[in-house]
């Protein structure tokens, strides 16, 4: 049974004529790692906010169809209830940091769901470990942390609630390269050691492509493509036309394929791209 099921889902924000999303049919299984891509304002954020009930609960607008998360229809349950099953990490590490120390931040959700003190202590240790935040950071205030550290604290504070589903909406877009790498590293760790459904919205696909089970392209309020990565990236020109720029090595290998120099699968990592290019070029040199 899927953990998220959207049936003919549509949403139009109040005061706007355009539907932010329309006719979305989607189901996500437990344990899947799903990447969502697409240009800005295409409906990606609306899609993920519908998955934890922020839409329709926190926004005014018109809804169509339904979203059922862990058996709960989002039209009937408040976000605070859904939040126990679905964690949400936002893109701006600054404005989602709600407290004055790392410890308060991580503990906040756990206090809200009324766990007992020992359980909280144990979960703090566990989640900080997973997010690579040293325990002596507990007393640090937000302004002593880098962007990457803040974002990892945000992830830890969600992990601590042990949700079955974790949604990250462009978690690296505001970070510097070190911060980006740190967060991707945590995602990799989560995939390895924490059996949750992970849903990530990302512009930079090079780091996510090797991790994801499935890519979804959202464009102009519609889900245009929904496929495993290798299949998803197979038609690079289609992606480019729809405002998505795949990793540059993929673009290069796709060009090799167009020239008739290569007919293998599209590479998902730099290493694969190197061997694919070598294969193609060796054919050329031997001619």
């Amino acid at each position: 049974m899927p953990v998220i099921r959207m049936e003919n889902f549509g949403w139009r924000y109040e005061g706007q004529e355009r539907w932010a999303l329309r006719g979305v049919n989607l189901s996500v299984e437990q344990g899947e790692f799903v990447a969502i891509v697409g240009p800005n304002d295409s409906g990606k954020s609306t899609l993920v906010m519908a998955m934890n009930g922020l839409i329709p609960n926190n926004y005014y607008g018109v809804i169509e169809g339904s979203v059922v998360v862990k058996g709960m229809d989002t039209r009937e349950h408040p976000v605070a209830d859904i939040a126990r099953h679905v964690g949400f990490v936002f893109s701006d590490p600054e404005s989602q940091f709600l407290s004055m120390t790392v410890e308060e931040e991580v503990v906040f959700g756990l206090e809200n769901i009324g766990l007992d003190v020992d359980e909280i202590r144990e979960r703090v240790e566990w989640s900080l470990g997973l997010a690579h935040i040293p325990m002596d950071y507990l007393e640090k205030p937000p302004y002593e942390l880098s962007g990457g550290q803040k974002q990892r604290v945000a992830i830890a504070s969600i992990l601590a609630m042990r949700p079955e589903i974790i949604i990250l909406d462009e978690p690296t877009s505001m970070l510097d390269p070190v911060g980006k790498t740190e967060v991707i590293e945590v995602l990799r760790e989560m995939r390895r050691s924490y059996n949750a459904t992970i849903i990530v919205v990302e512009h930079r696909m090079e780091d996510i492509a090797p991790l994801a089970d499935r890519f979804i392209l959202v464009h102009d309020g519609r889900v245009l493509r929904d496929a495993p990565p290798r299949e998803f990236f197979d038609d690079i020109d289609f992606l480019l036309e729809h405002g998505v720029f795949p990793p540059e090595p993929m673009v290069f290998v796709s060009e090799l394929r167009k020239m008739g120099l290569y007919d293998g699968p599209i590479p998902l990592t730099l290493e694969e791209a190197i061997s694919a290019s070598r294969e193609a070029l060796s054919g050329l040199r031997g001619r």
Partner: peptide, 13 residues
């Protein structure tokens, strides 16, 4: 807006 979303997403009441 972001703060209130972040509060809700951590089961705040």
């Amino acid at each position: 807006e972001e703060v209130s979303n972040a509060l809700d997403s951590r089961a705040f009441r």
